[in-house]
Amino acid sequence: MYGLGILKGLGVTIRHFFESYIEDIRYAGSKLTPTQKFEKRQGTDAVGIYTVQYPEEKIAVPERFRFVPFLVVEDDDHPDRPGHDWCTSCGICAKVCPPQCIWIVRSEDPVSKRPVPEPEAFFIDIDICMNCGFCAEFCPFDAIKMDHDYELADYDRTGTHIYDKEKLSKPFSFWRKIAPTTAWEEAVDRKSWEHTDVVKAKQKTGAPISVPGGLNDPYQPPIVPKKEEPVAAAPSAAGEAVAEAVPAAAAAPSEEDLAKEERRKKREAALARKAAEKAASEGN
């Protein structure tokens, strides 16, 4: 029968229209935060309308997301070398870049003319870059990473779309912020939060190295389970945690161990923080 199909089709449309309100009603009573509601709506069991109201709400990109690369530099408050490049201008990123959009000028020692592990200049033409992530993947020093900022629209490209070192450089803490898990994994591979060169230098002098998850770890471990209790929950049992040695971080622990491990790490981190605070106050 003709016409029935149209009615059916309109019915489908109107069902979709109302389904989003049913969603709203269903979650109206629950104590979900707006973030959790957003998650529901953007998850696998979403029904109804699921539009992202872009400028007012943005889908945060996942950790591995890659857009234009950036260069990692030390934080401004780094004790040894603030603002120093992680890049050693080894040139691997420039070689592995498929469209060849990376230009590096290697520094030379002014006297001996020998190369210095620090780029004099570093350019990326973002009009060529294909966001493939090879530079970040193959960089042996974790010095170039893929940024998460995609809001780069511009009225002009001639002067602005070849990014120079100044524009590319972002502190290490930024990378840790946007990709905590990845930064953690990389630090575990490097066996330190520090740059490989710093670790080598420290090993020579015997200075303490901040091992991820270890005693001197200044940072929170990233693998925080969802809906966690506040950090303060960690008990301040002092002695035995300090006595513990640095764990073999690369080993993959089982699931129950993981939770235990995390609690312990958190405690350690809190302790370390406390110690640092104490040291700082004493220093002043």
Partner: peptide
């Protein structure tokens, strides 16, 4: 994901 931009959910 982690919030990076303004209004990131």
């Amino acid at each position: 994901s982690t919030a990076n931009l303004v209004n990131d959910q």
